[in-house]
Design a binder for these strands. Structure first.
Lengths: 229, 229
DNA sequence: ACGGTGTTTACTGTCGGCTGTCGACTGCAT
DNA sequence: ATGCAGTCGACAGCCGACAGTAAACACCGT
């Protein structure tokens, strides 16, 4: 007991596995499950979060759930509410703050990337822009979103700065979360291709301030489009 | 038992209090104590961190200590080490990454502050610059550091952006930490006053891009000075 | 000496239970 | 009805104990 992934603990498991795999701690599994439940919207914003319910649900004790909760509170996805916890309640102000954070991180990332990016990444970025173009013309909504995410990730990663990357990864799901809750989609803008292309051009030319400027305008454009709704 | 602040649990406490005060949870107290111990250098980098030792030390059970550890791991101040934990081991690369993070956050903050800063804050900033000037001329090292910290904090706070502020507050102690460990002091540069003054001037003139640029150069200057050592 | 195999030890992960607190409910007096 | 005290159920904070594990140690045949 206590070593099988949540959800398999009663039903048993297949013995046909050919490698030995050590399950993550229950606390970590609980963390990921709760996080996923919040970000996917299965847990409503403001909904009360009760440790013991989930512990029972998963047939584990409250300790690992508590530890997961501690981390989620630190990350802001859960909030202490007098006595008890509730799911983070997003506000427009938060969303605005988040976008300014994006501006800070990603514009800086573009600036740094201009000096550090490698040829293979540039190639990938160029491909990405073209794939985005196709997705836009064919009206492939999910495609646009996923290519867009990849575009920004590639640039942030090419800074080789672990803090920027970590920060980026911590707020990216939140943006999707807001879009899920508040907005239908923010991909109506067709300028995205041109703006991405401008960033790539600046990166290719190793023009740091130019890359910064392009990325800054791109994200701020996104923000103003969203705010108009 | 279990409801008095750590350190008072055996000695009892005065009954002359005239207000009811709720003690912070043991987990929160443990969190702050551990964090303080790390940042002050009393816990050496790389030193193994043993939950049960500290629980015994404080006469509490391991549960609250564990919860504190969870948060500190999430923040990066403790690291999982196979089986067990150890104190975050800073590296030069980390320090460099941290400074680029500063560039991202604080340059953006200056940009936003230019549009949002209020007159009283501008006055405070101007006073701050003059106090810094005096501290520099009298060779008051600690004074320079504390005025410098205040300067940057004032600007970040005047963005009214909770994410930027939170990010700033999470890395600020780390910078002091690095300075404590690696460097004697990074305040040998006397340009600090002129650079701060330039930022304040740009803010007063509501020149966003100018404020951005000044702050960017100021912090990068700091970084290059440090790196030369 | 030395690789390999028990064995101890010191720790983390998890559990179930106890206690304090809060909010809702109940019943009584006004 | 209304205000108040008492009661109760639900939940978080905390605890002591147990189980599992990794590294250090001791032992052994070679």
């Amino acid at each position: 007991m206590g070593y099988f992934p949540i959800g398999l603990r009663k039903e048993g498991f297949s013995l046909t596995e050919d490698t030995i795999v050590r399950a993550k701690s229950l606390a970590q599994q609980a963390y990921h499950l709760i996080r996923e439940a919040i970000l996917s919207g299965r847990l409503q914003p403001g909904e009360r979060f009760i440790e013991s319910r989930w512990a029972m649900e998963w047939n584990i004790s409250r300790s690992p759930v508590r530890e997961a909760v501690r981390v989620l509170v630190a990350e802001g996805l859960l909030q202490e509410n007098g006595n008890g916890y509730e799911v983070f309640r997003p506000s427009l102000q938060d969303f605005h703050d988040l976008y300014e954070m994006r501006l800070a991180i990603e514009a800086m990332a573009a600036r740094l990337a201009a000096e550090r990016i490698k040829e293979p990444t540039l190639v990938k970025l160029q491909e990405n822009v073209e794939q985005t173009q196709r997705a836009v013309t064919t009206g492939d909504g999910p495609g646009i979103i996923s290519y867009n995410t990849e575009f920004h990730l590639l640039i942030v990663e090419s800074t080789n700065n672990s803090r920027l990357i970590h920060s980026f990864q911590s707020y990216t799901p939140l943006i999707d979360y807001y879009c899920l809750l508040v907005l239908t989609l923010n991909q109506q803008q067709t300028d995205i291709v041109a703006e991405h292309q401008a960033v790539v051009d600046a990166l290719r030319a190793k023009q740091a301030t130019d890359a910064y400027e392009r990325m800054f305008l791109h994200i701020r454009h996104d923000l103003t489009v969203i705010e108009r709704m």
